[in-house]
Every structure is written in C-alpha cells, then in structure tokens.
Design a protein around this nucleic acid. Structure first.
Length: 461
RNA sequence: UCCCCGGUAGCUCAACCGGCAGAGCGGGUGGCUGUUAACCACUAGGUCGGGUGUUCGAAUCACCCCCGGGGAGCCA
C-alpha cells in the first residue's frame, strides 16, 4: 500500500477508510488501554494524532515507539473527538520501521536552544522550528525560479571553480589536488604549474561576471547558487559558504535594477506569506512577534528611494548619536543603514548613487564625475539585503577606472571583450539568500537558516 | 582581528558575602478508561569547560587557555 503524506491526509474534508502513514514519533501519551502517538513526516508542520487501542495489531511494539523512532501506521482517518486536531488516525496496525534509543536520542519534546541544535545539525530538521524553516527555504528557492521564469529570464549556471583570483569580492578559497609532499620546496609559481589546471584555482565568490556575459547574449538572466568567502568574519550574518542570487539585465539602467529588486522582494514575500502560512505562524509565535506585520509591510508598501547624498543629510541632521561619523564619501555603517530602514522610513529603503570611492570598479560612473550608479536595498532588522549597480559598459571609462585603481585586467580580457563588441548598458544585483531567509523568518543567526553551516573554524557534518 | 557576556546532570537553568551539588524537563520502573509539549509515584544520573594559584576550605576569588553566544569591522 502506498503511503499517504500527512499534509495530504489532513487536508481533506472527509474521513478515509484505510490509509498508510509513515513518519517519526514526536511524542507518545499512554493511558491504560490506549496510546496516542504524534507522528510527523516533514510534509507539513502539523503532526497526525494516531490513536492505538490495546489489542490492535502490533500494540506490543508501542513501548519501543519512543520519541524519534520511525513508524508506519495503517488505519482509518476519522474526525477527532478530542480538542486540538480535526482528524486523527485510528490505527488498525502499526509497524516499527526504525527504533530510537530513548536514553541517547538527543531531541526531547521540550524546546531546545538554537546553540544546542547547531551541534546536532543532522537531527534539527526534525524539530518544528527547523522543519518549518527548511520547508520555507525550499519554497523560497522555487519562488525565485518562478519569478524569473515568469519574466523571461534565463537561468545561467555560473561556474563554482574559477581561475581568476580577483572576482572582486573578498578573500577566496584556493582549490588544489596536490598534497603537501608534492608541493614541498616548490615556489608558488611552480606549484600552480604542477596543479590540476596548470594554474591556481579558486572557489567562486560571485557569479556576476558570468551573468554579465550571458546578459549580453540572452538578454535577461540570473544565477542562483553557492558562493564562497574565506574571510575571517565571525558574526551571525556571515558564512564561508552561502547562496547568492544574481540577476543581470541587458539594455537596462539603475532604475530598472531598482524596480526589479523591489518587485522580487515583494513577490518572494508574498509567496512565503501565501504558501507557508502555517510555518510563518510558527515563527511569529516563537521567534519574532512582529514578523507578520513586517512581511505585509514589505509586500504592500512601496520602498523608499533615496540618493546617497540625501541619506547622508538625513543621518547628519537627525540628531541621533551615531558611533561612526556621517559624511559624503564615507560608507554607511550598520547603525546608519538600520536607522534609515527602521526609524526614518519604517520599510525597506533603496539608497542609490554612491560615491565612486566606496564602490567597485565595474559600476557605471554618473555624469557628475563623483558618483556611480549603484544601489543597496536596506531592510529593517537586517541591513543590506541587495547590492547592485548599472555596469560600466564604456570601454574607455572602464579601462581608465581600472588604471586609476591600480588593478590589472589581464585575466579578464573576455570581460573587456563584452565592451568591445556590441556593448550595451546593463545592470544587475546580488541578493544573499540566507539573509533573505533571515528577513522573512525573523531568525537572527545565519547558521540557523542553512542546512549545514560552514563558518570560520567550523566544518561539521 | 577587536569589545562585551557566558560555560554547573542528556537539555534549560539555580546555588546570596568562599562553607554538604539543586530544580524542571528528558531517561528508567510502576500506575492511570480519550490524551494534547498529558498526569501521579518512585528511581538512576555530576571531572561544576581545562589548568595554575590564593585559602583551613573554591562551582564561587585571581591569572592563563579552550569552547559557545552577542556586537563591531568587512560584506552578501
């Protein structure tokens, strides 16, 4: 007999004579001649209540069906006479699929701390909170593909391995197939020549350059995949491996870029609100009481758009005592970003036209000669959630900027070729997927929104 | 890398000014005629993160180290 998923069993409007449910026991309550099993199979937040009467086939197995054990239950789905659930499964027979030793099973019925659950990342998805979280993560990934697919964007698989050591966004992990013995005594150049690719190889820090290439051929594209940073950042918002979404549009300017970013965030927020209502409710109850209001706010209220110069004036004149100085040419600090989003605007805010000194070389220079067409979306509680720009498509301007900064583009002849042959204005942005999840769930530590977090000094599981 | 807070039973935490190591939950055993993170009774369970020092006496005070958390910088 085929198993019925619990989400399916609980969704109907009628009882069912004979179904088979499989899942893990969340708790068991025994009375003298009847036992109640709460079984969860991960398909939804809700458990199904199994009622097992003495004398039922397999009743003697019940004593081994403790918390965490895997069971199969066949029986009749009937309206529940008890409070707390609409349907229950009146068991005709039960089987023990996989026992869980009660003395050593680490999950208890009661709430655990996030810190403890991180030490058992292989079991934490079996808890209500992490089950809900990882269902949302999955739904959100799907919603991203839907959003772009509906708009005619092509999904580009940017490479994970790269031979370029300055994609422009931080420290990189070097990849090698050589052991210590094979490299002993070699210079770095000799070592690179002997290595797998005949040159140094790294894990990518961004798919942007590949996205630009494909935008300048397929038009509208996006990349969505893992990226890697070897920075020694040890904070609740940084991981060494994280997922990044990077759309890129040809024939587009900064306004198009901002429009896309705002539409994307609104669409994804709506998707989570409408498709994961029960899971969102869990986060509203146990993680962040203000979550539903914040999500509705993101979905419904137009984002404020603020030129960097105005943002600086607001910060300088607001009377707030900031720890770091405010002034044109200085980068916005966390405290400034949060003031703008949380206090001044009360909703996500897009700051744009930043001084060129504090932004990357590839960003398109504005006519004022001192700013670039860059934009950051700052979200309440999180800070920067999106960072993007129009790209410098004018070869001479780009080369001048590269020279000015003392960079070398030797490895990027192909990137410059985009500006040599049929160059077009184009724009895009990067969105940190984990940070988006934090924004949409209220979870405050990045290690708790990724299945197996990789952070500085931590590589478990 | 810097600043702050913490580490006591499997988990979450108490232990006041230095004086016998505690509770709830979880586990085990037994009980209970429909329970809702059930309930009742009994019970097992400790290198007080590690080291050094001060003291008649250290979970408690001092110093060093390890680990965890929060914040900052950098960023996504």
């Amino acid at each position: 007999m085929k198993r019925t998923k619990i989400i399916e069993a609980l969704r109907g409007d009628a009882g069912r004579a004979d179904i088979l449910v499989k899942g893990w026991v969340r708790t068991r309550r025994d009375a003298k001649d009847v036992s109640f099993l709460e079984v969860n199979d991960g398909s939804c937040r809700a458990n199904i209540q199994v009622v097992a009467d003495a004398g039922m086939e397999g009743y003697s197995l019940l004593k081994d069906m403790g918390v965490g054990s895997a069971v199969g239950v066949r029986g009749e789905l009937v309206a529940s006479p008890g409070k707390g659930q609409r349907w229950e499964l009146r068991a005709a027979s039960v089987v023990l699929i996989g026992a869980a030793d009660q003395e050593s099973y680490p999950l208890q019925k009661k709430r655990h701390s996030d810190e403890f659950l991180r030490t058992i990342a292989h079991l934490r998805p079996r808890t209500n909170k992490y089950g809900a979280l990882f269902r949302i993560r999955s739904e959100l990934s799907f919603a991203i593909h839907e959003f772009f697919h509906d708009r005619g964007f092509a999904y580009v698989h940017s490479p994970i391995l790269t031979g370029s050591d300055c994609e422009g966004a931080g420290e990189m992990f070097r990849v090698t197939s050589l052991g210590a013995r094979e490299t002993a005594g070699l210079s770095s150049g000799e070592r690179a020549a002997k290595d797998f690719f005949g040159k140094d190889a790294f894990l990518t820090v961004s798919g942007q350059l590949a996205a630009e290439v494909f935008a300048c051929s397929l038009g509208d594209v996006y990349t969505f995949g893992p990226t890697f940073r070897a920075e020694h950042s040890d904070t609740s918002r940084h991981a060494a491996e994280f997922w990044m979404l990077e759309p890129e549009m040809a024939f587009a300017d900064l306004v198009d870029d901002m429009d896309l970013g705002e539409a994307l965030l609104k669409s994804l927020t709506d998707a989570v609100l409408s498709r994961c209502a029960s899971d969102v409710e869990l986060f509203a109850s146990f993680v962040d009481k203000e979550l539903p209001g914040r999500l509705v706010n993101i979905r419904d209220k137009p984002f404020v758009r603020l030129p960097y110069g105005e943002a600086v004036e607001i910060l300088a004149g607001c009377g707030q005592g900031f720890q770091y100085p405010v002034g044109f040419g200085l980068d916005l600090q966390s405290e400034h970003e949060r003031y703008l989003a949380e206090v001044h605007c009360g909703c996500p805010v897009i700051v744009y036209d930043y001084p060129k000194e504090i932004k990357a070389f590839y960003m398109r220079q504005n006519d004022d000669g001192r700013t670039v067409a860059a934009m950051d979306v700052l979200a309440p509680g999180i800070g920067e959630i999106i960072g993007g720009s129009a790209r410098e498509e004018r070869l001479d301007v780009l080369e001048a900027r590269v020279a000015e900064l003392g960079l070398t583009m030797d490895d990027y002849w192909w990137y410059l070729d985009l500006r040599r042959f049929g160059s077009v204005p184009h724009a895009g942005f990067g969105l940190g997927f984990e940070r988006l999840l934090m924004l949409l769930t209220g979870i405050t530590n990045i290690r708790d929104v990724i299945p197996f977090p990789r952070t500085y000094r931590h590589l478990e599981f």
